[in-house]
Nucleic acid binder design. Structure first.
Lengths: 248, 248
DNA sequence: CGGAATTTTGAATGCAATCAAGTGGGGTGG
DNA sequence: CCACCCCACTTGATTGCATTCAAAATTCCG
């Protein structure tokens, strides 16, 4: 794998609306991002578990995936990061990555040195806010998933994952009939939900038969009955949105 | 439940060795902690899911527990916090708690207003380091658990949980024959490991029969065969220590 | 068009939940 | 002091959900 490729135009990238454009914080963020910006193809592994790490992974476009693997190749996807999101894969040893980081799709992203990021956070309260808010979002969506992983049925976990990804990828709405695309195979969705690929398939099919949703053409999902799906996922849509989706 | 009770002597509390005693950062941490210090009984619920929160939960002595609950009372313990550890239960909405916080044992702790904490982190790099290191520790141990919750057998999850709690509570060592106490019932351990209480019992009994460990008298655990236990947990002890236990 | 990866379906196995009943210890009140 | 109760733990039996294995169908991509 080659080194970072300079990104010609980071200005089109979907920087979060927080901090607001025009503010010094926004300018700092933009500068940080564009000076460390590069692209990768889907499937590229950016960091392995246990490797040295000193940077923040900031996603501009595409989806990023953080996972861990056990013996026999059993893998659990710990989190998926969407444009505007970021993650530091550090463990208790700040220089060691606890996670494997991989591009789920073709991706544009920035690898910002931890120190630069922290300096920026010290200088701009809005960036510190953004950081804390992101940590909160990550923690709460991981917690929701963990709850269902531990105590839910396959239907519950998978329905939740669909709701979460839909909410996050369609920016805050989950309406009947809206289509959204999940750039994951059923096997990957299985790794995300702690299920085998076969059972993901069966479960999606069952959802279709029940009229909850429609899955066409490689994970294009149309939710047909939001309320029923939310019931299966055991969520309250509004509470979940407040919990995992940053305001504004 | 009554309000916070002033803690007469926080100086005996096991403040982390980072920042080092004598430094300004240490003094600031001590001041923050002792001015917000109080005690609670085992079982006290300190915060409910969805409630407002604006503070960091810093544990001085005793164990704290963060959990989430689904319909029908199915609960998952997301994390356990030991003395010297802390947690902010905030979600994407920084003022809303994503977790329920509960005292697992009688506990001495400090509830430090987020703003004071953040100001202190801005003033003292060591405190910021401590914060990032703690976030890293929390994330990596949650990830390890999540991996096994999703992809491991009951034996793997439970063996891992025992190793993690032993490593953390006996400060970095996991030696044969050492006894340590886990102040949780089997039902709570089940909520931690995504298993039913009944199955936790069976699994612990099986471990005993295999000579991996001994569990006596309400969760006093003696590990008899560290290597075998680590093998069941699918961990490498040294890697895990580096990953989840802060250095020094 | 051919090969590889993904999805689908069937059948069998096995792990863990649930239900149910019984044991044992610690604390309380008579 | 003893009886009782409550809670935690233990063990057995049954049920059911999800995995695994296997094979076919479909789609993607070069």
């Amino acid at each position: 794998m080659s080194g970072p490729i300079a990104c010609l135009d980071a200005s089109t990238a979907p920087l979060r609306t927080v901090p607001a454009p025009g503010t010094p914080a926004h300018a700092t963020l933009r500068a940080l991002v564009s000076s460390h910006c590069f692209e990768r193809q889907a499937g590229s592994v950016l960091k392995l578990e246990g490797e040295e790490t000193r940077a923040i992974y900031y996603v501009l476009s595409g989806w990023l995936l953080a996972s861990k693997t056990m013996a026999e190749g059993h893998r659990q996807i710990i989190d998926v990061i969407l444009p505007g999101g970021f993650l530091e894969p550090a463990s208790a040893d700040p220089d060691m990555s606890a996670l494997e980081i991989e591009a789920l799709t073709d991706i544009t992203m920035a690898l910002i040195p931890r120190h630069d990021w922290r300096r920026a956070c010290n200088d701009h309260a809005e960036l510190a806010d953004l950081t804390y808010q992101t940590v909160g979002s990550v923690m709460s969506r991981i917690s929701e998933r963990m709850l269902r992983l531990g105590k839910g049925t396959a239907e519950t976990v998978i329905a939740y994952a669909l709701c979460e990804l839909c909410l996050r990828s369609t920016s805050r709405d989950l309406v009947e009939g809206a289509m959204f695309h999940i750039p994951m195979t059923q096997a990957q969705l299985g790794d995300f939900c702690g299920q085998s690929a076969v059972h993901v398939c069966r479960t999606l099919r069952r959802f279709e038969r029940k009229g909850l949703l429609d899955v066409t053409d490689h994970m294009d999902v149309v939710i047909l009955d939001v309320d029923a799906l939310a019931r299966v996922a055991e969520i309250d849509l509004d509470s979940l949105r407040q919990e995992i989706i940053p305001a504004t």
